[in-house]
Nucleic acid binder design. Structure first.
Lengths: 246, 246
DNA sequence: CGCCGCTTTGATGGAGATCAACCTTCGTGG
DNA sequence: CCACGAAGGTTGATCTCCATCAAAGCGGCG
């Protein structure tokens, strides 16, 4: 169930069989199914559990008063929403599904058990939340400094590597079940311009986005184009000194 | 020394005298002075302690390969850089001073002590890190959806309220020791356009920015202009049920 | 006094928004 | 099995906000 999460965390530290079982258990306690394009939790709601995306894509977003919408992040399988979220009285943004989604709710208690039992798991989860923060910073940079082609290239690199780090990509590419309108909300571009940018990237033979699949023809070129530096994903086994040895 | 931090945390939960003393102690162990416009820690460096800004302003930023720079956040007195930062092998961005800055380094050990001794402090610090995350999301929204006037208005509202929540603002305004070039790096606008936008806001009698001071003539109007919703700062005493009663 | 960092001004150009159609695909039900 | 409708993708024309370039003012400090 939470294979993607486990795979991802192992980019930080090697987990023991016991650790993995504990994660499996926490991630399969209460699983619910959400249809595509539904709200999972809304701005103003009280968050009551930590959510783990088991399958499907979702996104965080927020509307401005006048109806403009910004998607501030994507969730892919293995992603967790904020660890300490139940400290807050209400959500300041919404989370909605893009595809059909499977969500595991992890109660405050089982999270505390999980992190109390294994120091290694606790640290891996903290690492994951630091990476999420770094991703958010990178989105800020993306919107602040890059032009349309660079922005989309950067987003594609990120989503590809993130899925790859969770064991969910192929050499050629990965899933990408996002409409052009949603891509616009995520990149701060109009739908029309997203369309034109995609055409440009396609004719430059960088990528193809079709049928909810992203095919990357030349990852190195794409990364150069985007000035993509993967350092912020911290995939370098930073916790190796804590590795389990069974 | 860490009055600003204490004041800020009390927007979440009322701290006991003991809590406050513990924070004071942790925040005055090792304090260092940094000159204006120096790097405090650089991309690639290994973070070794959690830093608390005791006085002055600093910012997080990152350069793209081609020299463009994005400031992704400001630090004001009472702000803490990421709590678990020592889990990472290297910084993915830099932190630099804007003014002269006093920094308290909090070692991993004293942080653990601090959070171990008082559940209330631990939760307050986690709350603070959730707020930082929300701020980062809001910057993403700001750059993605707002135009120049709205962006700058939003930034002014945020920095005013953040300083106010730490007891560091007056009714009329607050410190704002940021050059127009730096404002440009933070808002994703050119220096020239920042200048013109400021003039426009000044002649609309919204704000004046002069001598490193921000004067807000009509906060409500400014907030409306920016479509500023303060919910993301979570200043509503979300942890009131944990209040100390001495 | 003179210099350096910061702010201000004017002129020009371009990336991307907006508006308004039209096309394509695919699922649904008659 | 085809018709229809809705959602998503594509196109062209026009406009605007903001970047860029270049130069000139300003003010505080050595």
């Amino acid at each position: 169930m939470s294979q993607a999460l486990i795979r991802k965390l192992q980019n930080f530290v090697k987990l023991s069989a016991t650790d993995q079982r504990a994660l499996e258990r926490a991630g399969s306690e209460r699983v619910r199914r959400i249809g595509p394009h539904e709200d999972i939790i809304r701005e103003g709601d009280k968050p009551s559990s930590v959510m783990l995306i088991v399958d499907g894509w979702a996104c965080r977003y927020k509307y401005l008063e006048d109806g403009r919408r910004q998607i501030v992040g994507f969730f892919v399988p293995g992603d967790i929403c904020d660890l300490n979220i139940f400290l807050l009285k209400e959500m300041d943004h919404s989370i909605g599904s893009l595809t059909e989604v499977l969500i595991a709710d992890i109660s405050r208690e089982s999270l505390e058990t999980l992190m109390g039992v294994s120091q290694r798991i606790a640290q891996a989860l903290w690492w994951d939340s630091l990476v999420s923060l770094a991703i958010q910073r990178e989105w800020t940079i993306n919107l602040g400094q890059r032009d349309a082609v660079e922005r989309m290239s950067h987003l594609f690199c990120e989503m590809f590597l993130r899925q790859q780090s969770a064991g969910r990509a192929q050499i050629s590419g990965c899933e990408f079940p996002v409409t052009q309108a949603e891509l616009g909300d995520a990149t701060g571009l109009s739908t029309v311009h997203v369309n034109r940018t995609l055409q440009q990237m396609r004719s430059a033979e960088m990528i193809t986005l079709h049928n909810k699949r992203l095919v990357i023809h030349d990852l190195d070129a794409l990364m150069r184009q985007a000035m993509f530096n993967p350092n912020y994903l911290h995939l370098g086994r930073d916790g190796a000194h804590l590795d389990a040895n069974d």
